[in-house]
Every structure is written in structure tokens, then in C-alpha cells.
Design a binder for these strands. Structure first.
Lengths: 206, 206
DNA sequence: TCGATAGTAGAACGGTCAGTACAAATAAGG
DNA sequence: CCTTATTTGTACTGACCGTTCTACTATCGA
């Protein structure tokens, strides 16, 4: 065959992801991406087709590397082991929120990488793109699903709609915290603390 | 003096506000603003100095025309009249959330004017502008203050930090709903319903 | 009525954007 | 080694950006 690729795709996508994360899709220029990845336009266009193609790869990377690893603890872990232990589920919820608090408090202090790559993409022209909106909504649904699974384990006797409401509440608090993270870190952390406190209580409020 | 202005400033600012609201600051072009306001660049620059000047006027208009009228019911209304009636305060909270639900459900169905003008401005380059971040944080603080006032009236005996937590929770739910409104209207409404339900309950959860 | 003054129109500016064309460079297979 | 497929560097395209400039127009005070 021909010449071999001189760069590691995952590394390049990761670097591009951080730029999109920092600036948002619209405000990120190909110059920014060239600088961050160390590649020229030719290589980027050859490998990803377009700015949008690289963005899609970055989103996928974001979900796989950032979002889902943190969500993994909520969805059950090794199912049969402690899958039905309410205390373990509550602990998983609390540790998730603690991790998020830590991430919001520390991440992006240096590189300006604050909030959520997907949520900030809802602004601007990208927000009017049906594919982008769909991706963000899928992300939201993934959050709700993970929280539902955890809450169901944490509150074995709870009614279905009570579990749903609780999951929606947690999702909303996370969304709000990630939105506020770009504006006021302390308030974002305080918002997550609300979720952490709620997760510690064995019985949910109204 | 000289020639008189041929347009109504408030009308023009309102039209510009709706464009910024729809597209966000970065994605809004002067062409969009010309089209929406019916004015030429010259008039816009003469009256507002720059795109940013017009945006600042639009934000001020947004706060005065959209945000604060809705918040007015929470901060006390005619103070001494029912200023100390917990039931009235709870009703004010519930009606605020109902109004927000209605706005999220209906507003922008036609014109794409969804979510919050200020929150969507945190994305992109505008989000790295200290002035913009400050404006958004001031907006958040205004929400917290209004909710604190209402909750304090709704729960006369509640401890200060319980009131604060409650106000922060309401703020987070509103922020989340306005963020999600651009992605999934139904979920945004459901999120506000959580707040509405919580406002109806006389005793707050943990 | 007649400047002085403020508002408007439209073109033009330099700069940046995403995307492309094309040739040079490089590595694999024969 | 030599062909061939693929990657990469460079320069360019046409479009659009926010801003500015100049010429023109309308209005008010004198």
C-alpha cells in the first residue's frame, strides 16, 4: 500500500475534543485545531472529512472517555454482586456527585475546559442542527437512565414514577451544575452538593 | 439640532434581542441584525457603537422585559399586604414555575427563541469574556435572591441555610430547564414540574 | 431661509473562515 | 529498485465577518 499515517488518531481526536470543549463548535477554527493537534489541514480533512466530522469524533470520544466511565458506577457495576444493595447504590450516587464536584472544581482551571462539551454546543448555529440536538438529548437520556438504575437500587420499594422524578432531579442538578461551571465554579459545586445530600438520604422528599 | 431618528429604539433592541436569543451572540451576524431590525449598518453603529453595544442593550432589555417581570411576584409584591402569608408565597412560587413551563412549552415554537439568552451566551468566545460571565452570574444571583425571598416567606420558621438550599435548588431546576429547552421541550417542562411540585409542599425535603 | 448638526445609505476594507487543488514526500508490495 | 497508494505541505478560493469611510439627507435653531 501507500504511506502510513504519522499520528495516533485517538490522541488527535482527544486534542481536538479539548479545543471544542473549551471554545464550542462554532468558535473553534481549523487553525485552532491544527495548532492543538499538530496536524495540517490536509491530514485533518483526509482523516475526518470535515470540521464537523472531527467534531463528531470528538463527541464520541467525550462520551467514551469522560461521560461513560463516570456513569459506569451507577448502572449496576457487577450486577449480581451488590446489585441489590441499597446502601451500595446510595454510595455510588454520592461518589458520582463527589467526582463531578471535584471535576467542576478543578478541571479547566488551567485550560478553560469547563462545563460540558455537549451542552455548550446547543448554543449558536450548531444548536439548530437536528443531529447535534439529538446527540445532546441522547446524552441527557443516558444520564436519566443511569440515575434511574441507581435510584431503583437505592430505593427498592419506591414507586416507578418516584424513581423517575428522582432521576430527573439528579439529571437537572448535573445539567445545571455543568451549565453554571462556565460562570461560577463555586455555585456549580454547591449545586452538586445538593444532589450529594439528597443521595445520602434514604427516603426521597416529595 | 440635526436629523431625527427614524426608528423606535426599544423596538429595534427588542428585535435584535430576539435574534441574539435565537442564535447566540457569536452566530448572530450584522446581516441578521439588519434584516431583523430593518436598519442599515450605519444606523446600528451610530446608535449602539458596535455589535457588542447592541448585544448589551439586548441583554438589558431581556432582563427588564422578560426576566424581571416574571420574578416580580416572588420578591414580595406589595410587601406589608400579604408579605408574611406563607400560602401566598407558595402560590407565587407555583405560579412562577407554571408560567415558566408555559413559556418553555410555547415560546420559540415558531421563531426558535428557546431557552435563555444569557445562558446560551456562555458558550463560544463570548463565554470567555469576563463581562459576559459576570452578567450571567449576576442573573443567576438575581434568581437565587428572588427564590430566597419567596422561600423565606413560604417557610417562616425555616433555618437560613435551609432557605438557601431550597433557593439554590429552584435556581438549578430553572437553569436546567432553560438549558434543556433547546434540546427537548417536554423534558424541560417536566423539570419545571419538579419545582412546581416542591413548591406546593409546605415542608421541604432534605 | 440657511447653515449646523445629527441620522442614513451603501460601498469598501482588511481579516478570517471552511474547504479545496495539487504537487511533493513517504512507505508498503512486487 | 520501482511502482503505486496514501499522506502531508502549501497556496489558494470564494464567501462572509465586523467595522469604517464618505457622501447624502433630513431636521432644528437662528
Amino acid at each position: 500500500m501507500g504511506r502510513t499515517q504519522s499520528f495516533d488518531t485517538a490522541t488527535v481526536v482527544g486534542a481536538a475534543r479539548d479545543v471544542f470543549w473549551r471554545l464550542g463548535y462554532d468558535a473553534t477554527s481549523l487553525g485552532d485545531l491544527e495548532r492543538a493537534t499538530g496536524l495540517g489541514r490536509s491530514s485533518l480533512y483526509h482523516a475526518f472529512g470535515s470540521k464537523r466530522g472531527l467534531f463528531d469524533a470528538a463527541v464520541e470520544n467525550y462520551l467514551d472517555e469522560i461521560v461513560r466511565p463516570r456513569l459506569a458506577g451507577l448502572t449496576g457495576g457487577d450486577a449480581s454482586a451488590d446489585g441489590d444493595d441499597p446502601a451500595a447504590a446510595r454510595a455510588a450516587l454520592r461518589s458520582y456527585f463527589a467526582e463531578m464536584s471535584d471535576a467542576v472544581a478543578t478541571l479547566g482551571h488551567d485550560d478553560g475546559r469547563a462545563g460540558c462539551l455537549l451542552l455548550i454546543s446547543t448554543a449558536g448555529q450548531a444548536g439548530h442542527d437536528a443531529m447535534v440536538r439529538g446527540a445532546v438529548d441522547a446524552y441527557r437520556a443516558e444520564l436519566v437512565a443511569a440515575f434511574s438504575a441507581a435510584v431503583r437500587r437505592a430505593l427498592p420499594g419506591a414507586a416507578t414514577d418516584a424513581v423517575e422524578r428522582r432521576a430527573r432531579l439528579y439529571t437537572a442538578l448535573v445539567v445545571a451544575a455543568l451549565t453554571l461551571a462556565r460562570v461560577n465554579r463555586e455555585e456549580a459545586v454547591a449545586t452538586l452538593r445538593l444532589a450529594e445530600d439528597a443521595a445520602g438520604a434514604p427516603v426521597p422528599g416529595p
